[in-house]
Computed example of a mutant assay.
Amino acid sequence: MPRLAKTAYTEQPWRIHELTSDFSVEDVWSFRTPGAGPDDFPAMLAALRAAGGPAKQPLPVRFLFAVRWKLGAVFGWDKPSAGVGERVTSLRDRLPGDLHDAPRGPDDEGMPLTAVYELDRESARELANKTVHTVMHLGWVQGTDGDHELRMAVLVKPNGRFGRLYMAAIAPFRHLVVYPALTRQWERAWRERHNAETEYEEGGSR
């Protein structure tokens, strides 16, 4: 199953642990990437960017995002004053010297999360609003079948009781609609990129 125990994230030696001791682990999800090797994390990130963000998701997911942004506009959840650098400080302010000097990774206007850092085996992005400060961490690990796979951890720091209620309310939608659709999109993105690279290499060797 794509959903994993939280220990699948906490037991890995990720650098993000140095920055998020005051966050809780909300979800851990896996994405199958058959044929992937230990050095393919940058290729996976490139495939995800090419696949597009929420705008490329199926209609039910786009509908949920549209409802969420509409509610945010009505109740002021997403005002700049509630975001990173305003209501909360960015995780980039916590980075040790070596991470601060590492590549940050590109920001995408189609994605509401902003880059914190990007390494050869992991990356982190963050988002804050009136409900939570959240981090999406992507890591590259060896799966049980020998291939490497992508794992996503969602870390959250709710904004008080309202933030905790908000996270509880959206949990069924994340688990039953958003994450399964994301799994299909991201796994397809890997297959398409991997197949294209394989065909190119086979064509070049003839």
Rank of each mutant, 00 (worst) to 15 (best):
Ala5Tyr: 06
Ala5Ile: 05
Lys6Gln: 11
Lys6Tyr: 03
Thr10Gly: 06
Gln12Phe: 11
Glu18Gln: 14
Glu18Trp: 10
Leu19His: 02
Leu19Asp: 03
Asp22Trp: 08
Phe23Tyr: 15
Phe23Gly: 03
Val25Arg: 04
Trp29Glu: 08
Ser30Val: 06
Asp39Glu: 15
Phe41Cys: 13
Phe41His: 04
Pro42Cys: 10
Met44Asn: 06
Leu45Arg: 10
Gly53Lys: 02
Pro54Met: 08
Ala55Glu: 08
Gln57His: 13
Pro58Val: 03
Leu59Met: 09
Pro60Met: 02
Pro60Val: 01
Val61Pro: 07
Val61Glu: 00
Phe63Thr: 00
Phe65His: 01
Val67Thr: 04
Arg68Tyr: 00
Arg68Pro: 00
Leu71Ile: 13
Val74Arg: 04
Val74Leu: 15
Trp77Gly: 06
Asp78Leu: 05
Ala82Ser: 11
Gly85Lys: 06
Glu86Ile: 00
Thr89Phe: 14
Ser90Pro: 02
Arg92Gly: 12
Asp93His: 13
Arg94Val: 05
Gly97Lys: 09
Leu99Lys: 05
Ala102Ser: 14
Gly105Leu: 11
Gly105Ala: 08
Ala115Met: 05
Glu118Lys: 06
Leu119Gln: 01
Ser123Lys: 11
Arg125Thr: 14
Arg125Leu: 10
Glu126Ala: 08
Leu127Cys: 06
Lys130Gly: 14
Thr131Lys: 11
His133Glu: 10
Thr134Trp: 11
Val135Ile: 15
Met136Phe: 15
Gly139Ser: 12
Gln142Gly: 05
Gly143Ile: 02
Thr144Phe: 12
Asp147Cys: 04
His148Gln: 10
Leu150Pro: 04
Met152Ala: 14
Met152His: 15
Met152Pro: 09
Val154Tyr: 10
Leu155Ser: 01
Pro158Tyr: 08
Pro158Trp: 02
Arg161Thr: 01
Gly163Ala: 07
Gly163Arg: 11
Arg164Phe: 01
Ala168Cys: 07
Ala168Phe: 11
Pro172Asn: 03
Val177Lys: 00
Val177Asn: 00
Val178Gln: 04
Tyr179Asn: 11
Gln185Thr: 10
Gln185Pro: 01
Trp186Lys: 13
Trp186Glu: 11
Ala189Met: 14
Trp190Asn: 13
Glu192Lys: 15
Glu192Arg: 14
Glu192Met: 12
Glu192Ile: 09
Glu192Cys: 11
Glu197Gln: 15
Thr198Ser: 11
Glu202Tyr: 12
